[in-house]
């Protein structure tokens, strides 16, 4: 890794060239060969930024809260790189990326870099690309790297594995706390945030979350439940995230967390690369086995097992 000279685009990103970073993120989004080379070259420069994830169901106020959190970091003189992920249409592949709209003032700040990604469907790059985009922002030297994702499901888990601290945002309109528990959101949270706290049902939701945490098995970190009204003030969320960051820095917890996160990402990548290699040129085999399953000559599971046997023989 250190024997080869850095490619010029990698060098420009390390120098703080914002245009090069913009282009590099496009590469990361496509996850093509160029991206792999760039990420290889910059890997050694990652790990310096404090990484924060903000997630939760659509419409709870994540972008507005993110604005507030960015503002608080800026007030302390920290530069901030932001990745905002919005869903792409599964039909057309198009996306309306509106986070710059919500983060108007912050997006214009020269010490804030904001990039929007469309999720580009489940088969596309997001699950792989978003963590790499955070690596690039990290290598580019921002003090804080913040990722905000909409939607629910696998994406949130990916956020958790590449951020040091994850805030899960809920609002009284986003359904009750049980919904959030079903969606698997609660367990990835380092901070739980009930936004729109002035609305009816907010306090009940916060109390339900506390109740759930009371009943959960004891863990070294208990996620605080904070209440915010994002349009006025995101300080409570900022402070809770800061507290988690401080806690992580004690006793090497952050190294352990990052190692675990990288292991998860490694597994996902190995999975993808293995599948890619092993299935290359195997269309005929897949067609044959699928035909057998369709004709009830084999069960689907049996067809899968025998396909694997044949590939590995």
């Amino acid at each position: 890794m250190s024997t080869t000279p850095l490619p010029p685009d990698a060098e420009a990103i390390l120098r703080g060239d914002r245009r090069a970073l913009g282009k590099g993120l496009t590469c990361a989004e496509a996850m093509d060969d160029e991206a792999l080379a760039l990420l290889d070259a910059l890997w050694g420069s990652t790990g310096r930024a404090r990484r924060i994830g903000i997630t939760g169901p659509p419409g709870v106020g994540k972008s507005t809260l993110a604005s507030g959190v960015i503002r608080a970091h800026r007030a302390l003189g920290r530069s901030v790189g932001v990745l905002a992920v919005d869903p792409s249409s599964p039909l057309t592949g198009g996306a309306l990326l509106g986070d710059r709209h919500r983060m108007g003032a912050e997006a214009g700040d020269p010490n804030v870099f904001l990039r929007s990604f469309g999720s580009r469907g489940s088969t596309g790059g997001l699950s792989r690309a978003a963590p790499f985009a955070l690596d690039l922002l990290d290598a580019a030297g921002f003090d804080v790297v913040l990722v905000e994702t909409a939607g629910v499901g696998q994406t949130e888990i990916e956020v958790a594995t590449s951020a040091d601290s994850v805030a899960v945002v809920l609002s009284p309109e986003s359904g009750d706390a049980v919904q959030a528990m079903k969606a698997g959101l609660i367990e990835i949270a380092d901070v739980l945030c009930v936004n729109k706290a002035d609305r009816e049902g907010a306090e009940a939701m916060a109390e339900a979350l506390e109740g759930m945490l009371d009943r959960a098995p004891p863990a070294p970190w208990r996620p605080p439940v904070v209440r915010t009204r994002a349009l006025e003030d995101a300080t409570a969320l900022f402070e809770a995230l800061e507290a988690h960051g401080t806690w992580l820095l004690e006793g090497g917890r952050i190294e352990e967390r990052r190692r675990r996160g990288l292991r998860g990402r490694l597994r996902t990548l190995v999975h993808a690369l293995l599948a890619e290699r092993l299935l290359a040129g195997r269309d005929a085999l897949l067609d044959a086995r699928a035909g057998e399953a369709a004709g009830k000559r084999r069960s689907l599971l049996d067809a899968a097992r025998s396909t694997v046997e044949e590939i590995l023989r």
Binding site: G22, G94, L96, L97, R100, G108
Partner: peptide
Amino acid sequence: GMEVVYTGLRQTPEMIVKAASEE
């Protein structure tokens, strides 16, 4: 099928070009 980055109102030329570069 396009990815549209919508910035909203009252953008200065500087903000527009910063956005174009980052995005």
